[in-house]
Design a protein around this nucleic acid. Structure first.
Length: 560
RNA sequence: GCGCCCGUAGCUCAGCGGAUAGAGCACUGGCCUCCGGAGCCAGGUGCACAGGUUCGAUUCCUGUCGGGCGCACCA
């Protein structure tokens, strides 16, 4: 695994800093017991160096001297570090470190050598992470929040993998319980309507047109003879037929969206395998169950939940909650080192309950990580896009994807932090102009591809990296390379915080830098050497754009 | 009432305890004999309020106010 060049330098510098402090301590500059956290960071502002440390600020109180004076002393104890050029003391006492020019060529060469592997790292090496997301009930079309969760889950999986983790994406199929039963009843009612009966539609039933479509299919498949069977049997058949059909359509939609799951896990299988009974017995044995009002309750309130929760209803049905407990227990039995669930906003109140259940089973609740994919406001041209109030009709995931396309949808879902509400403007997402960030970034990639086509036609074909390319670079190139070299660190930050939106923000910045550069410097017409040097830079940027976009599940087009 | 999320520029949002708080959109004015103008450049008296921790707080803690969501023997 290639550790990124910039990260290596950073590590060496951090080590030098530690050594410097140790030496200073040995000389009595700082008392031996001082243990402040010294940070080495990448400044936001490039005029603050390639790296900066707050060491002098932190150590000032121990040395009982002004920070800037401490900084000077610290510098005198600092060992030499490769690629490091000048240092400066700035602001209240920051020490800024600047790399000498030779780092540019090294950094560019590394990107071109590693290509798609650039940025890969070992942060999560050895981790086996399960990501469960979307898991929509198979009772109707998926919605826009499902689409958001899908984008986030898929992108996180990609980011985790690039950080060395083993990742499994899983979809939990709620093919058991009341919801699918209601689906069966709804279809059954429509079925009888189709046969000309005056039917009283179930009050809690699903009223979308797709139910009638499914009833049509039931009629076409099983004919009117089904009417003669007992009601229970009819509902059962409609349920099985309906949920399977809907599940298949959900699977198809997700596949078209580019989301590929490793595991489709059936809730029903937990009942069939006895896993649910087993966990009930386990909780019983721990004395955490009791009966009240005819139902069986789990004492989740002992573990931080507001109140106890029912796991078996008075009429003898097990609840979704107990299935979910068995499901999560199963996850931990599969030896994942981390289990991450992405839930919709309507489930956020469910977190304490689930964590309490984990604690009840002796599993550290901190090991259950839950991300909330927050709700979405659909807009059109800046105005609220009202979903149809007509019964059962709403904007589905597929409607949205048909409208704006996969790339734009993913970008918009990933450009904000997952747990913040999102305004999604359908018109803006579709716009093929610079107002639309996803096109702006993709355009940067396509523009570079176009440059190489132009260069080939002009007979100045790029021949891959040449060390002498860097000699023709100045600060314009350096600025871009600084952004490029920050990429590996960015991926680590994104992975640590489960924050794909950092990648979108980064790509937007990189694309902006490149477009500005493109306007300032000409790639062709200033001689073959200059062309080659600038094309090398373009190639570097293109690799990063492609890699970044791939981590978001967005295409990097050669032409647009 | 309890719990979770959120109050940052006109709007939508970034911002890992640090140095002059950023981006996109919108608005105004420039830039095409030129590699894709699907672009670039210039223009900004903004961290809800009050305490606390810290050398340093938009960031962490507490409280107040304001907004969203959730609190089923549904999932």
């Amino acid at each position: 695994m290639a550790a990124a060049f910039m990260l290596e330098i950073r590590e060496k510098l951090a080590e030098a800093l530690r050594q410097g402090i140790q030496r200073a301590k040995a000389d009595g500059v700082f008392p031996p017991d001082c243990e402040e956290t010294v940070k080495l960071e990448t400044p936001k502002d490039r005029t603050h160096g390639h790296f900066a440390t707050n060491a002098a600020l932190v150590l000032a109180r121990w040395a009982k001297k002004p920070p800037r004076q401490v900084a000077e002393m610290l510098l005198s104890y600092l060992p030499e570090v490769g690629f490091l050029g000048r240092t400066e003391i700035a602001g209240p006492g920051f020490i800024n470190f600047y790399l000498d020019r030779s780092w540019l060529g090294e950094a560019a060469a590394e990107v071109l050598r590693l290509a798609e592997a650039y940025g890969d790292n070992d942060l999560l090496r050895g981790e086996k992470i399960q990501l469960e997301f979307v898991s929509a009930n198979p009772v109707g079309p998926m919605n826009v929040v499902n689409a958001r969760a899908a984008a986030v889950g898929d992108s996180l999986a990609r980011i985790f993998k690039t950080c060395g983790a083993q990742v499994e994406k899983e979809y939990y199929i709620n093919d058991y319980g009341v919801q699918v039963w209601v689906l069966g009843r709804s279809i059954e009612a429509r079925y009888r309507e189709l046969l000309g009966e005056a039917v009283e539609f179930p009050e809690e039933g699903y009223r979308g047109d797709y139910i009638t479509d499914l009833a049509q299919e039931v009629l076409a498949t099983y004919g009117s003879e089904l009417r003669a069977k007992p009601e229970e049997e009819r509902v059962e058949l409609c349920k099985e037929f309906g949920y399977k059909k809907i599940l298949r359509s959900q699977q198809e939609d997700l596949k078209n969206y580019g989301i590929v799951y490793d595991v489709w896990f059936s809730e029903r299988s937990l009942h069939q395998s006895g896993a649910v009974d087993k966990v009930i017995k386990e909780l019983e044995a721990k004395g955490l169950l009791y009966e009240a009002d005819g139902a069986i309750w789990l004492k989740t309130s002992l573990f931080g939940d507001d109140k106890d929760r029912v796991i078996r209803t008075a009429d003898g049905r097990t609840t979704y909650f107990i299935s979910d407990i068995a499901y999560h227990l199963n996850k931990y039995e599969r030896n994942f080192t981390r289990v991450i669930d992405i839930w919709g906003p309507d489930h956020h109140g469910y977190i304490p309950r689930m964590k309490a259940a984990m604690a009840a089973l002796g599993i550290d609740p901190a090991r259950l990580e839950v991300l909330i994919a927050q709700q979405i406001n659909l807009l059109k041209g800046g105005k609220p896009f009202k979903m149809s109030k007509r019964r059962g009709e709403f904007i589905t995931m597929q409607d949205l994807l048909n409208e704006v396309g996969n790339d734009a949808a993913r970008w918009y879902f990933l450009m904000r932090s997952t747990d913040s509400h999102l305004d999604f403007d359908l018109e803006l997402a579709k716009a093929q102009t610079s107002e639309n960030p996803v096109f702006y970034v993709q355009y940067a990639h396509a523009r570079i591809a176009s440059l190489f086509r132009q260069a080939a036609e002009a007979g100045v074909a790029w021949q891959g990296w040449r060390p002498e390319d860097a000699e023709l670079w100045d600060d314009d190139e350096a600025e871009i390379l600084e952004q490029v070299a920050r990429f590996p660190e960015l991926l680590i930050t994104a992975a640590e915080g489960c924050e794909p939106h950092r990648v979108t923000g980064y790509l937007l910045e990189l694309a902006t830098l490149f477009h500005a550069y493109y306007n300032r410097k000409r790639f062709l017409g200033e001689g073959p050497e200059v062309s080659h040097a600038r094309l090398s830079l373009a190639a570097v940027v293109q690799r990063i754009l492609a890699k970044g976009l791939s981590l978001l599940g967005i295409s990097a087009p050669e032409r647009m």
